[in-house]
Design a protein around this nucleic acid. Structure first.
Length: 858
RNA sequence: GCGCGCAUAGCUCAGUUGGUUAGAGCGUCACAUUGACAUUGUGAAGGUCCGUGGUUCGAGUCCACGUGCGCGCACCA
C-alpha cells in the first residue's frame, strides 16, 4: 500500500485522469455500463472559433459538466455534445484584420477562394485550442459526436431549413432599409448594433424660403433624400398644410416634399415636424410605406454621397456633406438654430463602423406572417411566445421570462443575408429574374453570393447536432428535446430565442426543457474582464496554478443563475485549499483504517455515529434535490459544510479518540467522493482508485435511507462542546488527549454543564451511568492522569457566560409569551402554535437550569 | 421613453412556498497548533435585512410609493 502524498498535486494527475476517461469511452452514452433508459442530453453552446476560451466559457463548462456528471452518476443515458461556431462576421473580420496587419492586403486582393482558405486555417487553429482547453477543464464531452456549425452535415441542415421556410413563405427577399456596416461591408441584424453616445449638433431649418415648416435633424446631409415632412394629425400649427406638396431647391437638388399626417410624430419634439428620409432611416421607411412615399437613396455602400444627392455633395463622405449642407443653410438664411445635443450613434458590434441605414435587396425571415400549423394559423412570433408561456420551456431565473417576451413583442423581420464570404452560402439560384431555392438547377444559374447570418445555423444547433434533417436519426429519437440549455444571459435573444423559433417551426417541439442562464464573470471590482483593462484571469493559468477542480469550484459555488459573479485569484486559492482538505481527509482515513475500501453497510452504535450518518443521509437527500432543480451552488455549499465542518472537524476528531470507526469512515468517504464528483471530478477520481471499485465517473449515486438514524439536536451540541472541552484541557494543561483518563467533577457550579461533561466522557470511552457521577474515571494505556474539571474552568468566566445566556433566554421567553398572549394563539395554524409552546417549555427548562447553576455559585 | 433587476455583517453573497433568536465564505481580533491538512483548529466581535407606509396573528420574504445603483430594448427626427 502506497502512502498518499501530504498534499494533492493536481498538475501531476489531471492529464492522466482525463486520458483514462477518454480511453474508457464513458463520455459516449452507448458505452455507459448498465441498462440505461432515461436520457439526459445537453448540447454545448459552441464557442466561436475566434480565439481562446475565457472565464465565461470556463463557467459554462464547469456548470454543464456538473449537470452531466450528476446525470451519469444517477444512471441516465447521458450525452453532452461538443462543437464550435464559425461565427461568420466575427471570424471573418478578425482574419481580415490579421491579414491586413501582416500583409497589407484586403480580402478582395486575395479573392474569395484564397481568403476562405485562410479563414479556415485560422478557424481550425482556434478550434484545436478550444478543444484542448475544454479537456483541461475536465469537460466530459462526447468527442465522437463533435460538430461544427459550418461543416457538411450542418450545411445540409441549413439548406433544408432555408428551403422549408422559403416554401412556407416565411423567408422572402425584399428591398428594404437595412443596417449597413460600411466598414465590414455587410448588413447586420438589429441586435448586432451597439449604441454609443456622442456629441452632435441638432440643426433646425427650412428646406427653402417658400417652405412653410421648419424641421430638426442631426444629419442634414440625408435631407437631400427627403420626400415628405410628417406632422401629427392633430397639430394645429400644420393642419392646413397636410396633403400639400412643395417643390424646393435644396443644396443643389430639386426636392418634392409632401406634408403627411402620422401618429408616430411627437408634436412636442423640436418643431413638431419630421423630415422623412425613407431610404436612410428605418423609422422613416415605415412612415413612407404607410403613405406610399417614394424612396430616394442618396448614400452609397461606401458611406459616400451618390449622384442623386446633387453635384454639390456627390462623392463626399457623409461628414463632409453634413458640413456643406449646414454651410449652405446658413448662407441661404434658412438655418433657424443650431444646438449641441447628445446623439445615440449606431455602430456595428464587430467592426465598430458607423451603421448607415440603406435600402437593399435582402433575405428576411418573416416573424409576423401567418402560416398553417396543425390546422391553425400561427406566426413564428407566436410559436416563440407559446413555448415559454405554456411552460414547455422553463427559464432560470424566471424573471428573464419578461425580458424574453418584451424582446419578442418588439421583434421585426429578421434580416438573414450577409455580404461576407465566410458562412453558409444562401441556397438560392438566379437566372435573370427567376429564383430557385434549393439545389443548383443547372447551367446558366448563379448562386446568390451572400452568406447567412451566423445565428441561422446556430438556431438549428440542438437538432442539427443530433442528425437532423434525418428525422429518424437515432440520436434525434433518443435525445431531442434536450434537457437543459445552459448559456450566458447575454445571448438570450441572439441565440436562445432563435433556437426556439427554429425548433418549434421545423420540428414542432421545443429545443430544450430548461434554460439555465449563468451570469457574467467579472473581476473583483465588478468590472468586465477585458484586454484593455488588463484584468483578465485566464482559466488555463488558474488550472496550472491551482488545479482544474479548484477553478471549477470557484465558478460553480456562489454563482446563481442570472447573477454576475465576481472572481478573484484569492477565491480560487481558497477552493484549492478545499481540494487539499478533501485529499487529506482521505489520507487520514487511508492511514488510520489500513487502506481505503468499500463498505456496503454500517451500523451506528455510538451517539457520534448516529449523528454523522444521519447528517450524511440528510446531505445526500438535499444535494440530490438541489441538483434536480439545478441549484448547483446550494448543493456545493451544503457539501462543503458537511465535508469540512461535520466530517473533518468533528467526526474525524472523535474518531481519533473513539476507536472502531474504520468502517464508517470508509463508508462516508466513498459516498462523499461520489457526491463531490460532479464538482471536482479530478481529485475525486484520483482518490477513488484506492477503493478499487472501477471508475468513479460511472459509480452509483448514493441513495438515502441506507442507514437511517436520527440523533437529537441537543446531543449534537453536547458532542461539539465535548470536543471543545478535550481541546481546552489538552491545550491548557499540555496533556495529550490519548492519555487523559480521569475526569473529576467536583463543583456544583458546573451542574448546568453536566450533560456536556457526560458527553465528553462518552467520547473518551469513559464509563458513565445515566446520570453523571461526581467523578468518572477510566484507564487508557499505561499512563494515568488525574484532572479535576473544577480546576480547569474559570468560575468567573462560566458565571458571566451563564448570566449572558440567562438574559437572552429571558428575552426569548418574553418574546414567545407576548406572541402566545396575543392573537397569534387563536389565529395561527395549530402546528405553528404547538411548536411555539414546545419552544417555550424548552426555553423555560433551560432557564431553570441556568438559575440553579447560578444559585449554586453564589 | 419602455422594460427588468439589485440594495442583507468591513468585503462577496445565500436566505426555497411569509413562521417568529437572519446565515456562509473571505477579512479582522484572540487563543491553540510535534496533528491527515506548508493549504490547520477553536472562539469572538461585527446586522435599524435601503427608507416610508400597507396587508397579516406574524414581513428580510408579499403590496404601494420613494431613494440609490446596474442592465436590456428602443430611440430625439
Amino acid at each position: 500500500m502506497e502512502e498518499m502524498a501530504k498534499a494533492y498535486e493536481p498538475q501531476s494527475v489531471e492529464d492522466g485522469i482525463y486520458k483514462k476517461w477518454l480511453d474508457s469511452g464513458y463520455f459516449a452514452p452507448e458505452n455507459l455500463p448498465g441498462d440505461r433508459t432515461e436520457p439526459f442530453s445537453i448540447v454545448l453552446p459552441p464557442p466561436n472559433v475566434t480565439g481562446t476560451l475565457h472565464m465565461g466559457h470556463a463557467t459554462m463548462l464547469a456548470i454543464e459538466d456538473a449537470m452531466v456528471r450528476f446525470a451519469r452518476l444517477r444512471g441516465k443515458k447521458t450525452v453532452w455534445i461538443p462543437g464550435t461556431d464559425h461565427a461568420a462576421i466575427a471570424t471573418q473580420s478578425k482574419v481580415e484584420k490579421m491579414i491586413f496587419e501582416s500583409e497589407k492586403k484586403t480580402r478582395h486582393d486575395l479573392g474569395r477562394e484564397e481568403f476562405l482558405t485562410r479563414v479556415k486555417a485560422f478557424a481550425q487553429d482556434s478550434h484545436d485550442t478550444i478543444v484542448n482547453q475544454s479537456k483541461k477543464m475536465g469537460a466530459s464531452l462526447d468527442w465522437s459526436r463533435e460538430a461544427y456549425t459550418l461543416d457538411e452535415q450542418r450545411n445540409a441542415a441549413v439548406n433544408v431549413a432555408f428551403k422549408r421556410m422559403y416554401d412556407d413563405g416565411l423567408i422572402y427577399r425584399g428591398y428594404r432599409v437595412v443596417n449597413w456596416d460600411p466598414v465590414g461591408q455587410t448588413t447586420i441584424a438589429d441586435d448586432e448594433i451597439v449604441h454609443k453616445e456622442v456629441e452632435a449638433t441638432l440643426y433646425t431649418f427650412k428646406y427653402g424660403a417658400d417652405f412653410p415648416i421648419a424641421i430638426s435633424t442631426t444629419r442634414p446631409e440625408t435631407k437631400v433624400g427627403d420626400t415628405a415632412v410628417a406632422v401629427h394629425p392633430t397639430d394645429k400649427r400644420y393642419k392646413k398644410f397636410i396633403g400639400k406638396t412643395f417643390d424646393v431647391d435644396f443644396a443643389g437638388t430639386k426636392l418634392s416634399i409632401a406634408v403627411v399626417a402620422d401618429e408616430s410624430v411627437d408634436p412636442s419634439f423640436g418643431t413638431g415636424a419630421l423630415g422623412v428620409t425613407p431610404a436612410h432611416s428605418t423609422v422613416d421607411a415605415e412612415i413612407a410605406q404607410r403613405h406610399g412615399l417614394p424612396m430616394v437613396q442618396v448614400i452609397g455602400e461606401d458611406a459616400r454621397m451618390l449622384p442623386l444627392a446633387g453635384p454639390l455633395l456627390e462623392g463626399k463622405t457623409t461628414k463632409q456633406a453634413r458640413d456643406i449642407v449646414a454651410t449652405w443653410l446658413r448662407e441661404q438664411g434658412l438655418m433657424v438654430s443650431e444646438e449641441k445635443t447628445v446623439q445615440n450613434l449606431s455602430t456595428a458590434e464587430r467592426s465598430g463602423g458607423v451603421v448607415e441605414p440603406l435600402p437593399k435587396m435582402q433575405w428576411f425571415v418573416a416573424v409576423n406572417k401567418e402560416f398553417a400549423r396543425d390546422g391553425k394559423m400561427v406566426t413564428l412570433k407566436q410559436l416563440m411566445q407559446d413555448a415559454v408561456r405554456s411552460k414547455q420551456i422553463e427559464i432560470l431565473p424566471e424573471r428573464f421570462d419578461k425580458t424574453y417576451f418584451h424582446w419578442i413583442d418588439n421583434l421585426r423581420d429578421w434580416c438573414i443575408s450577409r455580404q461576407i464570404w465566410f458562412g453558409h452560402r444562401i441556397p438560392a439560384w438566379f437566372k435573370g429574374d427567376d429564383v430557385v431555392v434549393g439545389e443548383n438547377p443547372g447551367d446558366g444559374w448563379t448562386q446568390d453570393p451572400d452568406t447567412l447570418d451566423t445565428w441561422f445555423s446556430s438556431g438549428l444547433w440542438t437538432f442539427s447536432t443530433l442528425g437532423w434533417p434525418n428525422e429518424n436519426a437515432p440520436d434525434m429519437k433518443a435525445f431531442h428535446p434536450t434537457n437543459v440549455l445552459e448559456t450566458g444571459y447575454d445571448i438570450l435573444f441572439f441565440w436562445v430565442a432563435r433556437m426556439v423559433l427554429m425548433s418549434t417551426y421545423l420540428l414542432g417541439e421545443v429545443p430544450f426543457k430548461t434554460v439555465y442562464l449563468h451570469g457574467l464573470v467579472r473581476d473583483e471590482q465588478g468590472r468586465k474582464m477585458s484586454k484593455s483593462l488588463g484584468n483578465i484571469i485566464d482559466p488555463l493559468d488558474m488550472i496550472a496554478k491551482y488545479g482544474a477542480d479548484a477553478t471549477r469550484l470557484s465558478l460553480v459555488i456562489g454563482s446563481t443563475p442570472g447573477n454576475d459573479m465576481k472572481l478573484s485569484e484569492e477565491r480560487i486559492a481558497g477552493f484549492r485549499n478545499f481540494t487539499n482538505k478533501l485529499w487529506n481527509i482521505s489520507r487520514f482515513v487511508d492511514m488510520t483504517t489500513g487502506g481505503l475500501r468499500h463498505v456496503e453497510t454500517v451500523e451506528a452504535t455510538t451517539l457520534a455515529d448516529k449523528w454523522i450518518l444521519s447528517r450524511l443521509n440528510d446531505v445526500i437527500a438535499k444535494v440530490t434535490a438541489h441538483h434536480e432543480t439545478y441549484s448547483l451552488s446550494l448543493a456545493g455549499e451544503l457539501l462543503r459544510e458537511f465535508t469540512w465542518t461535520d466530517f473533518a472537524d468533528w467526526y474525524l476528531e472523535i474518531a481519533k479518540v473513539e476507536k472502531g470507526k474504520d468502517d464508517i469512515l470508509n463508508y462516508i468517504l466513498e459516498r462523499l467522493l461520489i457526491l463531490w464528483h460532479p464538482f471536482m471530478p479530478f481529485v475525486t477520481e484520483e482518490i477513488y482508485t484506492k477503493f478499487n471499485r472501477g471508475m468513479l465517473i460511472v459509480a452509483e449515486w448514493p441513495s438515502v435511507g441506507a442507514t437511517l438514524v436520527v440523533a437529537h439536536e441537543n446531543e449534537f451540541e453536547k458532542l461539539q462542546n465535548a470536543i471543545t472541552a478535550i481541546r481546552n484541557i489538552r491545550s491548557e494543561y499540555k496533556v495529550e488527549p490519548k492519555k487523559l483518563v480521569d475526569v473529576v467533577l467536583s463543583n456544583d457550579s458546573l451542574m448546568p454543564y453536566t450533560d456536556v461533561i457526560c458527553a465528553l466522557a462518552r467520547v473518551q470511552n469513559l464509563v458513565v451511568g445515566e446520570k453523571p457521577e461526581a467523578s468518572a474515571s477510566a484507564i487508557v494505556g499505561d499512563v494515568e492522569v488525574s484532572i479535576s474539571l473544577a480546576g480547569l474552568v474559570d468560575v468567573a468566566k462560566v458565571k458571566a457566560r451563564m448570566e449572558t445566556e440567562l438574559a437572552s433566554v429571558e428575552k426569548y421567553i418574553a418574546g414567545i409569551r407576548a406572541r402566545l398572549d396575543g392573537d397569534f394563539a387563536t389565529n395561527a395554524p395549530e402546528n405553528i402554535v404547538a411548536g411555539e409552546r414546545a419552544k417555550l417549555a424548552e426555553a423555560e427548562a433551560r432557564r431553570e437550569k441556568l438559575m440553579q447553576g447560578l444559585n449554586a455559585m453564589l
